[in-house]
Computed example of a mutant assay.
Amino acid sequence: MTTIAPSQGALAGSRRAGKPKRTAVLDRAYPGWFLLPGAAIFAVFFMLPTFASFYFAFTRWTLFDVKFIGFDNFVQFFRDPQLTKAFVNTLIYGATTSISKVVIGLLLGVMLTSGIFARGYLRAIIFFPVLVSTIGVGITFKALLDPFNGVVNTALASIGITGPGWLTDPTLVLYTLIGIDVWKGVGLATLIYMAGLVAIPSDYYEAARIDGATGFDAFWNITLPLVRPATTTVVILSLIGGLRSFDLIWATTNGGPGFSSDVMASVIFKQYQAGFYGLSTAGNVVLFLVVTAVVLPLFVWMNRRQADL
C-alpha cells in the first residue's frame, strides 16, 4: 500500500487550525503593536494640544485662571485692524513661495540629474540653505539688506545704482521676504524632484528620441506627467510652510515696516506678547482652519488628477 505525504499547505493549514483562537487573534494583531509608540507620541504631542487649543480658544486664560467666554475671542480677533492686511499677506506669501519652489525646484532638479559638470558640488550648494537655521537666515539677510550699510546696497552703489529699501519699503518688503524664503527652501524641493526624476525609466526617453521628439517634447509629455507625485508633495509642503510662516518674517522685519509684512502668525504672536493668551489661541485655531481649508481640497484635487494618469 502506498501512502501520500501531506502537502506543505495542508500541514500549515492544520497547524493554524490547531492554534487556540486567542493565539490566532494575537498573531493577527502583532504588526499593529509596532504602531503604538508612534501613535502615543502623535496623540500626546499633536492631538492633545490641538484639542486643548480648541477649548482654550473659548476662554480667557492665564497660567493660574481659566474663564469660559464663548466666541468673544473670535469676535475680537476678526475685529483686529491688522487682520485683513495680514490675511492677504499670508495668502500671497503662501501661494508665491509654493509656485516659485515648484518651478525653480523642477528646473534645478532636471539640471542636476543631467550630465552637467560638477553636479555633485552644485547639489551641495543648492541644498545647503535648507540646513541653516531659519532665524540665522533672517538675521543674516537683515544685515545684508540694510539700506545704508548692507553689503547688497553697498555693492550696487559701487556701480552707480541706488539700492532700494529691501526691508524698509512697504511695497517691496513682502516680496523680499518671499525671495529669501524661496532661496532657503528651494533645495528641499529640488531634492524631491531629483528623487522623482531618477525614478523615471530611461526607456521612455529613448523611445521618444527614436520617434523624433525634441527635448521640450520629452519634458512636456514624459517628465512633467511622471513627476506629478513629486509636484504634489512640493506644493503641499511649501503651501503649508508658507501659510504658517513666522520665524523668518519675525527675525527679519518683526512684521514691519508698520504692518506691511505682517502675516497671520505674526499677528497672533503680537497678541500673545501683549498678554491676550485666549485671543492668540483663538487666532491659532483660525489659522489652523485656514490652512486646512486651503490645503485639504488642493491635496484631494491633485491626488485625483494623479490617479487619472
Rank of each mutant, 00 (worst) to 15 (best):
F141H: 00
K142S: 14
T96E: 01
P147Q: 06
G94C: 14
T134N: 04
L188T: 05
F68V: 12
L239V: 00
P170D: 15
V66M: 09
F117I: 04
R209V: 10
L91Y: 14
N153V: 09
L11W: 12
G283F: 06
L26E: 06
S260I: 06
A213Q: 13
P6I: 15
L167G: 08
V300C: 01
T2S: 15
V75G: 04
K85N: 05
N221V: 01
T176D: 04
L11I: 15
R244N: 07
R209Y: 07
F42K: 12
K67E: 15
A195F: 08
I161Y: 06
R15L: 06
V290W: 06
L63C: 03
F276A: 11
G70T: 02
P201R: 12
R22A: 08
D203I: 06
T233I: 14
I126T: 11
A10E: 15
I180C: 00
G38P: 10
V235D: 01
A293L: 12
A155V: 13
V25T: 11
S280M: 04
L11V: 11
V186F: 06
Q273N: 09
R16G: 01
A124D: 10
R209W: 06
A39S: 13
L35S: 12
F58K: 05
G38F: 15
A155N: 07
A143F: 01
S98R: 05
F58D: 00
L83D: 05
D181Q: 08
R305H: 06
F77K: 04
I222Y: 13
V295P: 08
S14M: 07
G94Y: 12
D27G: 12
S280G: 04
G212M: 02
T168I: 11
D217G: 10
D72V: 09
K67I: 07
G196C: 10
G187D: 03
A143N: 08
P164A: 02
W220G: 00
W250E: 03
P229A: 03
T162A: 12
I240H: 13
S98I: 02
P6G: 14
